[in-house]
Amino acid sequence: MTERALTRPALAYGDVRLSRFDPLPRILFFDDFDNGANGWCELIGNHDGDLDKVRPVVSDMRPPQISSVSFWDIGTHGSIDGTYALKLATRPRANHMSLAIKRLTYVKPGLVQFETYFTFKSEAWIGARPDHQSGYDGNVDPSVFDFGDFTIGNDVCDREGGRRYHCALRYQNTDHAGNLTRNWQYKTSLQTTTKMEFSGRPAVSDYHVSDPGDWADVPGGHQPLCYNEIPTKINWHYLRYVFDTEAGRNVELQVNDKVMDLRNIAVPAYDHGYWGLDRLMNFCIDVRTHKPVRNFLFLDSVVVSVDW
């Protein structure tokens, strides 16, 4: 924990659930998913009322679910406290992504910190292992190869017509060739918007970037997470992500004991302005499968805080 945490007794917040977080001075929101979805909703691409015109990559990002984190073999796993977590679920289709968004604007530019406890899994099955599941040795479970990646990010616009950018940090569990990589990555190209496609840019297959290969490894970003052997055991991980809406950049990513300095990582910004997005500040989380197997991302709770 940081020096700031040492000066803040847990009970000073008046809510002991906050003692496992390390927020900046002002908490913007605290989402305990035992109380509902708290404004996290499905992202859909822009349209004119005809949903057939929504770009395919943003046409089917799935509604988030309030989940008891239950499995066929043991029943309810539950969240850290209470019963429910927020769940994102892909379809069982290769390259399908589920993305949830929470939309705010901001009062002052500066540091914004997103904290959560999360876990992830690919979908279990009942009975004999599927063909692609050979190689189980009682500890290493091939189901880990069924999980693709998950991403945390934002959508920030300073002023109407002004600087706009998306930060995105992806945990790549497996690459498209099916190799277990387990690296944190950052994106190196712009997210193609509806406006850009209207202007003739090609359609994309990865929501975040122009080309699926436009990702680079975060320096020092290799991190085996706690998969815990089979697809029906989950373990919660702490994540703290800081970005700066003054500088327009990532600042830091902490996942359990690993802290990654992101200040020198370039964040692509649009060379054209957008109408109607004054002080836009959206938070985004997503999960993507590389196989015809549903992938899940669970959030126990979220705290977002700022330095003003």
Partner: peptide, 11 residues
């Protein structure tokens, strides 16, 4: 009470 509308399938 909590309520939620999910669009399960679209077009």
């Amino acid at each position: 009470r909590r309520s939620f509308t999910a669009v399960i399938e679209r077009n």
